[in-house]
Design a protein around this nucleic acid. Sequence first.
RNA 1: GCCUGGGUGGCGGAACAGGUAGACGCAAGGGACUUAAAAUCCCUCGAUCCUUGUGAUUGUACGAGUUCGAUUCUCGUCCCAGGCACCA
Length: 862
Amino acid sequence: MDECYKPETVEAKWQAYWTSEGLHKVQEDTSKNKYYLLEMFPYPSGKIHMGHVRNYTIGDVVARYKHMRGYNVLHPMGWDAFGMPAENAAIANKTHPARWTYDNINTMRQQLQRMGFSYDWDREIATCRPEYYRWEQWLFLKMYEKGMAYRKESYVNWCETCQTVLANEQVEAGMCWRCGKPVRQKKLAQWFFKITDYADDLLVHCDLLSGWPDKVVTMQKNWIGKSIGAEIRFPIENSSQYISVFTTRQDTICGATFICLAPEHPMVLELSANTPQSAAVTAFVDRISMQDRSVKGIEAYDKEGVFTGACCINPMNGRKMPVYTANFALMGYGTGAVMSVPAHDQRDFDFARKYSLEIIVVVQPEGSVLDPSQMTEAYTGEGLMVNSGDFNGQKNTEALQSIADYLEAHDLGKRTISFRLRDWGISRQRYWGAPIPMIHCDACGIAPAPESDLPVVLPEDADLLEGGHSPLPTLPGFMNVVCPQCGAPNARRETDTMDTFVESSWYFQRYCSPHYHDGMFDPRAVNYWMPVDQYIGGVEHAILHLLYSRYYTRVLHDMGMVSYKEPFTRLLTQGMVCKETVHCPTHGFLFPEDASSGKERLCNICHQPVTIGRVEKMSKSKKNVVDPNILLQKYGADTTRLFCLFASPPERSLEWSEQGVDGSFRFLSRIWRLSTAWLPYIQHVSAFDGDMGSLSPEHRELHKKIHQTIFKVTTDIEDRFHFNTAISAVMELVNMMYGFSASDSSPELARMFRLAIESVVLLLSPVTPHIAEEIWHELGYSSSIFMATWPTYRPEALVKDMLLVVVQVNGKLRSKFTIDADAEDDAIERQALADERIVKCIAGKTIRKVVVVQKKLVNIVV
RNA sequence: GCCUGGGUGGCGGAACAGGUAGACGCAAGGGACUUAAAAUCCCUCGAUCCUUGUGAUUGUACGAGUUCGAUUCUCGUCCCAGGCACCA
């Protein structure tokens, strides 16, 4: 063993060994318990960033740990390889999305391998390969057959200049992110998955996701957004038609004084036609369609609306109610129509005040009287019913039921449940995605592509067009197809591609049998491996990716393809990797290496002092990034892994610190030196496992510390994934070991040190596998430490023979003493009261009470 | 606005069942080794005060409360981060 710790040598050596031994390849093995550990696969954006490093390090530690605990561990890696950045990069760099994607995959695979992660690379998948997406297309056809995939008109963010649909996050303050021109809402035929069929099931099962963080479960519940209420029909004056509204407050129906329709509501233009309001309504609807409805961050639009010229009749009391169209009514929720009760809904209140509409109180809070003319805000609390005919005097919570009963009995409406969740729009007018396997024929309309056509291959010879719209419609070889139903020669392929969330909704099943040719996955393999026992990824996917995956799994379940409904048993969402920002007055944000180090940091370009900003999520735009490659060169993979885990528990954000990394490197060097110093003495002895009674006090303490450390590390990893405290426990052990000198070692101490060093190396091996492997082999083992068994602690070694008792007076610490572990409570109390310092403390005072906490603490109250 | 988490030394973080607050690491200071430096090893390290002690007081965002005892439980306030945001 080299005198000095040189990670580059050690790491290259063992990575080569692991690969040549095929150490991380796995197969189904029914004689062993399986453990499926999955980290969210990356988008191949170019290079691995610190967020990946952290995510995959956490996963690798768990995978290696579980393997050492005897599980058959599936730990795969692959690429979420379709998506828009490839198209943008291709246009910018005059290359092709496929080329760009595959190049990135190669780079990133190398980086991951350099980190020493224990992936079974034979199972690598890339979702942009036809072997992968053909099965997604196959399932699409099955879903189409069942009505689970369908096409409908829907509003999308549309940029006229770029002739393309924009995702919500591509709309910046109402403008196209690419060309800066205004984005408008356009009606377009799009493909959808009927996730709303599963809304209730997805919601109900939220409560069974006991292995998920509460935060994520709550976010999923809120996203699904179930509301219980009623749908009520309001007849239109002088017409046989009616407007249907959804409300959760049917108790307030007698206070409803007007109706609001979403601007896109089909009745808006119909009602206003041939009225004096017609022109105003058309103008309003046009204007609202230009408003971006999805951008976050800008303040909510002012509530505004226009009278449609028509009125409704309140079915409860015959009141005439004007019908408005208003920007705050959403076509996508409920029925797209709202019964407005200004006295008891803040939005309606604001609207009524603005347009001088009537306000009628129907719920009176107990102990006070609301006067509509004096009210400054809506009253949304509970109270007694007033102005509501037969229902007056009831509690409004009762009226919620009795009015629903009344509406149902008189056929005016019915109880309904509404969900916030909408169907999943999967159409993208994009090139770099999985083609939707459908065909448009002038004669027969829409027809599914025959299964024999699959995969409908995305042509890779396309030239990407400036402006970003898809080249697919311009490719005759792709577009032109014979109609599979009527044989017409002039049918056209669907040119929309699928949302990339579709690929990530089932990849975890593909990993079980990545090379299977006869279906999405081999049922035998999936039955063995699924569900995923532990899923690890960024909290940013807490809603969409996880919800879509849960939905897609249900679809597979209901087709009889899988036996489970929930794909991920346990979920860990790791926090972000953050770093301070550095800002130069002339050069803006600086990369950390572009500012000098030291007390006063200067810009390396202009030598002005820089300002150190807040600690923020690492991002290219703020330049507060650390390149994993540089770290790997300087410190190696083990140090990088160690620091990622040591600096903070996984679910919290991690603040990157250069000095902290130094500290981690120092710790590994300390272990290295300790090993080289002791190896000559311990190489040929066996680890101590004898009688503890005969040990000298120092050796006994060391022995106890070793077993305490094994206990602590095991429980920290097993119960909570708190690697930071596990690592500090090992540091404590190493600190204690530094108190012994190898040169005056006895045979007994040599055996103890053999145990200590083996334990340190085994306990750290999931975190820092390379250095652990090196020392392991130096200890004389010929097979990989990865194949070793996780150490067990001797419970009898943890038994304390002396206890430290803390003595408080009135809850304040005044003294401590040690006493035999088998001392009784009253003996402890007697000794506490006899303690010199305690006697001084309580002199002249009356003891009112003495509390003794079993073998731990005495509190004397005076 | 609503829903989640969080606020502990100069810093990252411990305290996993209400019982010694600050484990471990970083930074800082001191010492040893060295011609010197680096590296390494050892020691000190929340604040204030004094009689320098296994000293006193104070201290886990702030204010109350429950308790013999609260970083931990309850209520209220402030701040920070994340999510949702006209959802009827």
